[in-house]
Design a protein around this nucleic acid. Structure first.
Length: 492
RNA sequence: GGCGACGUGGCCGAGUGGCUAGGCACGGGUCUGCAAAACCCGCUACACCGGUUCAAUUCCGGUCGUCGCCUCCA
């Protein structure tokens, strides 16, 4: 596959460091608040990338940190009269809960900064020994001038950056661009013992320390939002390569920002939308579909409207899976009308004939050929820098072809089952397994109402039948009349 | 000022030197007690101006416009 690398600024053939093992590190959140939908994008991107590599046969180790000590956490704690640890624990848990709802699974390792203080101290010590860092009072700073390649990721000139760099009160840096590796504790601040006195790690160092610990020097992919390129990832490189004097990461993968009503989401603009809010209103598949609908590197518009459209897309996929399952005879989502004991819902005929009795052998071969062609296109799209939008389009292409074949009565049970199985693989890679799910258990009362409605229809009591449909809809189900019976489909 | 991205049909959003993206919305039709689902047909674009080319939405140059980073930020 080819993967875009922000360092070389081009797509390059992706070959992992280890022959059969892909190593990935994505920057997770700093837990001082509920995560917003912008935080969800790299989470989804990383999980889909993991699934894609697994589909290629690689073993994948995905590490995604949780930064649980930081100035923002301390500020929040002071504000709320709690300890920083309490604040961090609360929002780390909220983060896990919210991202769990996406149904994508969890990264293989989710290290906490505070559980890696000794690794961090170790890395800072290496930097001091190699002359890339210096102690100033109770703080330790990275000496940017000592690292010649500083700026190579962000393509910033050090001389240019000096103008804008700021120095906060109380800092004792040698140069404005130098950044803190270790911050000595002020009274009342959380602190860990270190060779430089009690304090806490600076932002950036935890990611260098933890990625190196779990994945080793020169691991494959390091990702996160574009806005992390500078200074976060630039500093990670300086720390890791300064200490170890060899390449830190092979591919830098950065996702684009989300815009809300034409503007970047940011707290100062007051337009943040939390992941929790979105998932309270929309199915996780819809949110994932929104993300997959545009390329991961592109900035994207995010709105209620795109979520609604995605809901429609999810329904379209769910419907075709339902129909294929019915035709394959493996799902109980179709109910035979009680007043017509012998009726089958759209009998497919396991003998390979259509309901009209025309043999379907020829069209069966051609539709499976079409599926194979689209699967190839799907694979090509994913192999081209994870072009999920194009991959998704192939899935919709199969859906249309499947529906057309179904409508024409050209799909036998066996072919339907095969098509469905192939599509299940595809949606799995995209993290959309949920669209392939059945109806689970329809509540008894809903089933009873549907049955009663069917009997009303038989009596031509349509007023009562329509009333029941409305009531069923209020329960979150839809009754669809089909030849010889009806179906109950969950709508939310 | 420096670095970078981008301008595609009503909307979102892929992609390509000549050949259908896809979804949503909309219009017509089929099916149907109603409805839904689904199918068929239609709507067909590439900011602007030059240049290269047999041929450019796709390459090159410029103009205009939008956005991100350079400061905490996914």
């Amino acid at each position: 596959m080819r993967l875009y690398d922000s360092m070389s600024q081009e797509k390059r053939e992706f070959v992992p460091r280890d022959p059969d093992h892909v190593t990935m590190y994505f920057c997770g959140p700093t837990v001082y608040n509920l995560v917003h939908i912008g935080n969800a994008r790299p989470f989804v991107v990383s999980m889909v990338a993991k699934r894609y590599f697994e589909s290629l046969g690689y073993r994948v180790t995905l590490v995604e940190n949780i930064t649980d000590i930081d100035d923002r956490i301390i500020l929040k704690a002071i504000d709320q009269g709690r300890t920083a640890a309490e604040v961090a624990a609360e929002f780390a848990q909220a983060y896990r809960e919210d991202t769990d709802r996406l149904g994508l699974g969890r990264p293989d390792v989710e290290p906490l900064a505070t559980e890696h203080i000794s690794d961090i101290i170790g890395l800072i010590t290496e930097l001091l020994e190699r002359g890339h860092a210096y102690q100033a009072g109770s703080d330790v700073y990275f000496d940017v001038d000592s690292f010649e390649e500083y700026g190579k990721l962000s393509k910033q000139q050090v001389t240019e950056m000096r103008h804008g760099a700021r120095v906060a009160m109380g800092e004792d840096k040698h140069a404005p661009l130098d950044f803190a590796l270790w911050k000595g504790a002020k009274p009342g601040e959380p602190a860990w013992d270190s060779p430089w006195g009690p304090g806490r790690p600076g932002w950036h160092i935890e990611c260098s320390a933890m990625s190196l610990k779990y994945l080793g020097q020169g691991f494959d992919i390091h990702g996160g939002g574009r806005d992390l390129i500078f200074p976060h990832h630039e500093n990670e490189i300086a720390q890791a390569e300064g200490a170890r004097e060899s390449q830190f990461v092979r591919f830098w993968m950065h996702n684009g920002m989300l815009n809300l009503s034409q503007e970047k989401m940011s707290k100062s603009l007051g337009n943040i939308l939390t992941l929790r809010e979105v998932l309270d209103q929309h199915r996780p598949e819809a949110l994932i579909t929104v993300f997959l609908g545009s390329h991961y590197r592109s900035p994207m518009e995010f709105s209620e409207e795109v979520l609604r459209e995605a809901e429609q897309q999810v329904d379209r996929l769910r419907n075709v899976f339902l129909e294929l399952a019915d035709r394959a005879g493996s799902a109980a989502s179709a109910r035979v009308s009680a007043f017509q004991p012998g009726a089958e819902v759209r009998p497919a005929g396991a003998d390979g004939t259509t309901p009209e009795g025309v043999t379907a052998a020829g069209s069966t071969a051609s539709i499976l050929q079409k599926v194979a062609t689209r699967q190839e296109a799907f694979a090509d799209a994913m192999a081209d820098d994870l072009n999920t939008a194009a991959a998704l389009a192939e899935l919709f292409g199969i859906a249309r072809e499947a529906n057309a074949a179904l409508a024409a009565g050209e799909l036998d049970a066996d072919t339907a089952a095969q098509m469905r199985a192939e599509m299940v693989k595809m949606v799995h890679v995209l993290g959309l397994d949920a669209v392939a799910g059945g109806n689970d258990h329809v509540p008894d009362e809903v089933a009873a109402m549907a049955e009663e409605r069917q009997q009303c229809r038989a009596r031509r009591d349509f007023a009562r039948a329509d009333e029941l449909r409305t009531t069923i809809a209020q329960c979150g189900y839809e009754v669809r009349d089909v030849p010889g019976g009806y179906k109950i489909v969950r709508t939310r």
